[in-house]
Amino acid sequence: MTFLAVIGRVVISFLRAAGRIGLFAVNAVKNIFLPPFYPRELFRQMMNIGYYSLPVVGLTTLFTGAALAVNIYEGSARFNAESTLPTIVVIGIVRELGPTLCGLIVAGRVSASMAAELGTMRVTEQIDALTTLSTDPFKYLIAPRILATVIMMPFMLVLVADTIGVLGGYLLATAKLGFNSGNYIKSTVDFLEAIDVMASMTKAAVFGFFISLMGCYHGFNTRGGAQGVGISTTNAVVSACIMILLSNYIVTEMFFSS
């Protein structure tokens, strides 16, 4: 009986948390479309989330593309199928590694930053101050962050991640593995399909939504002082990463399941 009670409590607690996050998400999305709008705040968030994440996203995918090329070359050599390298690199990067790695990196950088910033604003009463200044915190703080992430993830970060990831494979293949530059590019372009790019950008938008939602939700609901901010930041990153990996599977199934 005690064991069942424990399971029951865990399930109820999980459902409560899911319900709270769901309501938070609905409120956030609703406020993206309802005035007043804060374009300055949106622009500031787009710069912070998109532009300032570019170096780390670019570096990570460059080296991942190169490492992927080495692995595929070594593996395909066992079947004398080295010529498939450009195709597998571009599909692997665009469909899977580009958006997923980019999502996980941005979750670490942006979700943590949002949770810490909003959490600090909560414990120092800055969010209460917004309300007393006739400003809805959802419209001023949450909506611009979510919209900025959903825009910048597909239209800047993942496009760049995919391109640089493929470039990493190309540089490694042409400089070290003896591939002809023109043939490599032709294979890459020939085998890349529109649906691959669409899947990549859809994943990016979905990941962007969860990254910002988790960062905002945990930050906005921070309790206590410095310790509370720390807990919120950790929870934001962990839950964003879980949601990225979960939604990655679902979107992949939606696009590519036969």
Binding site: T124, E125, T132, S134
Partner: peptide, 20 residues
């Protein structure tokens, strides 16, 4: 409520200034 809040000003304990 928003209309009524326009009548208010508040000085918070820690000032609660916006860092950004």
């Amino acid at each position: 409520r928003k209309k009524v809040l326009n009548k208010f000003g508040m000085l918070f304990q820690g000032a609660a200034l916006f860092d950004s």
